[in-house]
Simulated assay, not measured.
Amino acid sequence: MTPVFPGLWRKIPAAASYQIRCLTGNLRLSSAVFYSTQSPSSDVTVNYSNGLPVITLPLPSRNERCQFTIKPSTTTVGTFLADIKKEDRGIDVVAALSTDHTKFSNSTSMDVLLMNDFKLIINTCMYHVQPPSRDKPFSPDSSEMDTIKTLVHSLYRALHQEEHQLKKEQELLKRRDSLKEQLQPMEQMKSMILTRSDAKTTRLMWNGLALMSTQGGALAWLTWWVYSWDIMEPVTYFITYGSAIAFYAYFVLTKQDYVYPAIRERQLLNYFYKRAETQRFDVNEYNRLRDEFAETEESLRRLQNPLRLGLPIEQLNEKE
Rank of each mutant, 00 (worst) to 15 (best):
T102G: 01
H153I: 12
V94H: 03
Y237Q: 01
D198R: 14
A276I: 03
M232W: 01
P306C: 15
V54L: 05
P13E: 02
M232V: 03
F138G: 08
Q161M: 13
P60Y: 01
Q304P: 11
I55P: 06
F281A: 02
D43A: 09
Y286A: 05
N317E: 12
T214I: 02
V152D: 11
R275E: 13
H101L: 14
I231S: 00
N47E: 12
G216V: 08
L300I: 15
D88R: 08
K190V: 01
A246D: 03
I20F: 14
D100T: 15
F68V: 10
A220I: 00
A220V: 05
W229N: 11
T108H: 00
R176M: 15
V259D: 14
R308M: 11
P13S: 02
L52S: 05
K11V: 09
S178Y: 04
F80Q: 05
Q279S: 07
Q256I: 13
L81P: 02
Q188C: 09
E181Y: 06
Q256L: 15
F272R: 01
S42Q: 13
A249G: 12
H153G: 01
Q256E: 15
Y250T: 09
E285A: 15
P137T: 06
L173Q: 09
Y250S: 10
I121Y: 08
I122Y: 05
F247I: 10
L52P: 02
V259C: 09
V4I: 14
A96R: 01
F138E: 09
A82I: 05
S49Q: 11
N123W: 05
D92A: 11
Q304M: 15
L151E: 12
T102N: 08
V46F: 08
L166T: 10
S197G: 04
W9V: 15
A14Y: 03
W225Q: 02
A15I: 10
S98H: 06
W225F: 11
Q130A: 07
L309W: 12
R157N: 15
R301W: 01
F247H: 00
T150K: 14
S105R: 05
Q182K: 15
E162I: 06
K11S: 12
S107K: 12
E163G: 11
Q184M: 03
L300G: 00
M1F: 09
N123T: 09
V152P: 02
G51P: 07
Y260N: 03
Y271I: 06
L173G: 01
P40Q: 08
L151S: 13
P185N: 04
S36I: 00
T2F: 10
F118R: 03
Q130M: 12
N116P: 03
T147Q: 11
T45W: 02
I239C: 03
